[in-house]
Design a protein around this nucleic acid. Sequence first.
DNA 1: TGCTGGATTGTAACTAGTTACTGAAACTAG
DNA 2: CTAGTTTCAGTAACTAGTTACAATCCAGCA
Lengths: 331, 331
Amino acid sequence: MVKRATIGDVAADAGVSTATVSRVLNGGAVTEATAARVWEAVARLEYTPNALTKGVFAGHSSTIGVVIRDLSSPFYLDLIRGIDEVASANDSLVMLANTFRRVDREVAQVRAMDEQRVRGLIVTTGEATDGRTRRMAENGTPCVIIARSVPDAPPGMHSISLDNVEAGRLMAVHLAGCGRSSVGVVSSGGRMSQIERTAGLRQALADLGLPLPEDAVTAADTEAEVSGAVGRLLMRGRDRGAPLDAIVCTTGRLTVAVHTALTARGIAIPGDIAFVTMDDFPWAAALGITVVAQPSYQMGLKAGELVVDRPSGPAELVFAPTLVARTSCGE
Amino acid sequence: MVKRATIGDVAADAGVSTATVSRVLNGGAVTEATAARVWEAVARLEYTPNALTKGVFAGHSSTIGVVIRDLSSPFYLDLIRGIDEVASANDSLVMLANTFRRVDREVAQVRAMDEQRVRGLIVTTGEATDGRTRRMAENGTPCVIIARSVPDAPPGMHSISLDNVEAGRLMAVHLAGCGRSSVGVVSSGGRMSQIERTAGLRQALADLGLPLPEDAVTAADTEAEVSGAVGRLLMRGRDRGAPLDAIVCTTGRLTVAVHTALTARGIAIPGDIAFVTMDDFPWAAALGITVVAQPSYQMGLKAGELVVDRPSGPAELVFAPTLVARTSCGE
DNA sequence: TGCTGGATTGTAACTAGTTACTGAAACTAG
DNA sequence: CTAGTTTCAGTAACTAGTTACAATCCAGCA
């Protein structure tokens, strides 16, 4: 195993002090002749500076930490692409951690990011990590919470989220415009974003004279639970003599499962039932699925900028969703 | 801005030396009473150890570096999940960098990983980075090259790839079994994996008495080029009086594009043309698309283990593909 | 009471860099 | 020809930890 060259080795090879090498590498006042000798030594020894040591001295590393609940979601993927764009424009790397939707891992990963002294932290975690991110913000590490707003955020603690009520409204207006009147909702658990989307949908439907009763909304936390949820919705419609003519899915994560549950029952989309869901994805166009899309890449870009630009106050950014109309709701 | 507590602050607060604090934190010989006082100080000051400094002393950080060409591919996503699994079981974080398929960014990101003194590096880059990874391996940083084998690898430099010839063979046998005889191939550029898959397909088809002429294989590097490539394939079949009855796509990245190109032309799958592609993905089941899947999660797991376990010699692991038969080839 | 010894704890050197301060040339000006 | 200024490079202190070695403490034993 060959030992890596240190700045001391370079200095010795070039016949100068480590201070001079550091000056050459980081742009201080040095003679051209000296600089040339140092660069030669750097090349000869294949010197690669130690970013850890630089980080120790600077008080923080040059990487941006990102903690994601679910790497398989296309929303998060585009978000990461946006962050990565800003990062590489600023000589930063992105340190990514996946939490697989487990709270204990969220807490552990955020602590790990703190230990790594990341330059900034972008996080899609729940409230369990708020204590730590708050403190990190106070310690001078900008933190960005995605998909959730944070009450009483200190300076340096930002949030980026979607206007979820508007997302629900867009769905309602589109469905009504397609002549649908009996809507069922598959929603995932009790996250605020889910609740807001359903509330926005319900309010807009009510404004259009189409009430959305409580029991027309079912929760499915996992893909396995979706089929049952869809079945319940279908049965309820039949029982009331008002058969379901539209299904809304409030989370992109369950889109495949809902779609599969419908087609597996031989239900035609949009012939029998209209289908709208959240978040655009590569196959949506091929399948003709109408979606309410988040500007995920833009959100990632903004998150990266908040980390890099360090605005003084806390920022609370809300992005507008857009409906991408395809064929899954008829018309 | 509140300054972060250092080990010195903890030592002062607990009335001991920094050495003792270090021993309490890392498990050395200390009295219970001293340990209790130190832990109290740690809690009171909300001390979070600096992983950068630890890394400087250890000679490397505790994070695993991963450089990915294309984060949007489901193959890489599952690979990352596998790596992440091993990482978190070993108190490591994954530092991820995306290169967007650009060689200059590959080189820059691998250098950045070297500067970060990652504990190990897992990479899906091309030959341009081989010089650096070779040297890193010699310096004691295990490197794993994914989807490509490396000639004359030094100890600590490993490769994990798919048996691409077998992947092509699986496709050929399946298509022949479904009664298809006139196959067209959409392939992406000149990467070795693409060439091997096509070669495997051609050999197996030939063994079955079904030659695959050179011009039945078209290259499409980007999604935009796919439609033209498919058109050429279709036209060629018509011209020869042997209309195409199967299309093979040798890269998961272009699956959507090929599928869209076919359906946009009103071609029924499998009615008019059979379709097989590489890499399984969430919508494949819903769409009934037959695929040759890589054990991507397993490959990620293995890559992580190579980094963590540091076997002495260079390892060259080749994984077997499996065909997931659905309905897109008829039968 | 004094000695030996194991268990704790502190001191100081070390990791690989950066930078404030210092000193020595070299150049300019009177 | 000397004084003042600028330029350049080196010394040493600093970042936040770890650890080898030395020092101290108290117990057990003669």
